[in-house]
Design a protein around this nucleic acid. Structure first.
Lengths: 198, 198
DNA sequence: ACACTTTTTAACCATTTGGTTAAATGCAAA
DNA sequence: TTTGCATTTAACCAAATGGTTAAAAAGTGT
C-alpha cells in the first residue's frame, strides 16, 4: 500500500491543505513524499491534475455527510444534534480541511459544481418541508429553513476556519480549543433548539 | 489624491484580497494600477511590505468594530442587534474582506498578533461580566459568553467566507444572496435572542 | 534657462517554478 | 541470462517571478 502514488497523494494532501494551490510548490510535495520531483510528473500529468484530485477527495469528505443529514428522515431536533456532533468531530479529525475547502471553492467555484454538484436536485426541499411541517405541528417557532441551516453550518464550521484568529482573540491554547470544540458538539444544538422550540 | 502610491495601494488591495498573498502577482498589481511594474519597487520596498500594508489596513477595518461593540455599555440584546446589523452591512460593502482576513490570518497569525493584538487585555472580560450579570438578573438563560460571542460572529461572517459554496448549494444568485444577507441583519439577532432570553 | 530632485520607463537580472528528457535502475517473465 | 516493461533519477529547460539598474522624462525652484 505504500506505493509511490499513495505517498504522493498523502504528501499532496498535506501540502495543498496547508498552503492552498497557489502557495504549494511541487518541490515541497516531493520533499514531503521523500521522492524526486520528476516522479510527480510520471504519476500525475501536472500540478493542476494533482491538485484537483486532492480537492475532489476533500469535497467528497466534506459534503456527503451534510447531504445525508439534511435529507434524512429523522426528527428535526435529532437531526440538528447528530449533524453538529458528527460534523464537529469530523473537523476535529481533519483540522485543515474546512479552510482548504472554503478557500479553494472561492478560487474554483466551477470545479465544485462540476466535481460535486452536477445534477443534484435542490438539497433543501426535504429539509424545508420538514421545518415547515414541524412549525405547522406546533413543535417549533417560525424560522426560515435556509436561515436555520446556514446558522447551524456557520456555528459548526466557522470556528475551524477562523481558528488562529479565535485563539489569539480568546487567549485559548490548542488544548483549550480542542475542549472548547468538544463541548460545542452539544452546545451548538442546544443553542439552536432553544431558539426554535415552541 | 490620485497619486501613484494611492493607485498602487488601491490596486494592491483589490488583487491581494482576491488572490491572497501567494496568488497575487506584482505584474497583476501593476496592470491593475495602470503603471510600470518597476514603480511598485520605487514606492514599496518589496511584495511583502506592500502586502502587510494592505493586510494591516484590512485588520484595522475588520476588528475595531468588533472590539468597540463587545466593550460597549449597551444592554446585551441591543448590543447583539447593533453588532450584527453593522457587521453584516460592513461585509456587504467589502465582499472580499472576510475571506481575505480569515485566510491571511491563517497564513500569518503572528502578524495579526503584532499588528493588531499587542498589549490588548482580554477583550471578553466586560462581555463575560455583562452576560453573567444578565443571567443573574434573570434576563437571559445560562449561556457561556465565549459560545455566545462565537455563535454571533460565526453567523455573521461565515456566509461571506463561504459565499460561492452557499450560492451553489442553495441555488441563489448574487441578487438573492444580497437580499438574503440583508434580512440576516435582523434575523441573526432574532435567532440569538430567542435562544437566550428567559 | 539651468540645476537639481523626483518620478517613470524599459531593459535587464537571478532565482524559482512547473515541467521535460534521456539514461539508469529495478522488476518480472521466459 | 536476456528481454521488455515500469519506475526512478539527475540534469536540464522555458517561462514566470520579484526585483534591479540606468537612462529618460517630469517636476520644482532660482
Amino acid at each position: 500500500m505504500d506505493s509511490t502514488s499513495d505517498k504522493i497523494l498523502a504528501a499532496a494532501k498535506k501540502v495543498f491543505q496547508e498552503k492552498g494551490m497557489a502557495g504549494a510548490r511541487m518541490q515541497d510535495i516531493a520533499d514531503e513524499a521523500g521522492i524526486n520531483k520528476a516522479l510527480l510528473h510520471y504519476y500525475f500529468k501536472n500540478k493542476e491534475q494533482l491538485f484537483f484530485r486532492i480537492f475532489s477527495e476533500a469535497l467528497n469528505q466534506f459534503f456527503p455527510k451534510i447531504i445525508e443529514n439534511i435529507q434524512s428522515e429523522k426528527p428535526l431536533f435529532e437531526k440538528i444534534s447528530t449533524f453538529c456532533s458528527a460534523y464537529i468531530e469530523m473537523m476535529l479529525k481533519n483540522p485543515y480541511l474546512p479552510l482548504f475547502i472554503v478557500n479553494e471553492i472561492n478560487n474554483h467555484p466551477d470545479r465544485m459544481r462540476e466535481i460535486f454538484w452536477q445534477g443534484r436536485e435542490n438539497l433543501f426541499l426535504g429539509f424545508t418541508a420538514q421545518v415547515e411541517a414541524e412549525y405547522s405541528a406546533g413543535i417549533i417557532k417560525q424560522v426560515s429553513p435556509a436561515n436555520l441551516f446556514l446558522n447551524m453550518l456557520s456555528m459548526c464550521v466557522f470556528p475551524f476556519v477562523a481558528k488562529p484568529m479565535w485563539l489569539i482573540a480568546s487567549g485559548m491554547d490548542e488544548l483549550q480549543f480542542r475542549f472548547f470544540m468538544e463541548q460545542r458538539k452539544t452546545e451548538v444544538p442546544r443553542f439552536i433548539i432553544e431558539s426554535i422550540k415552541k
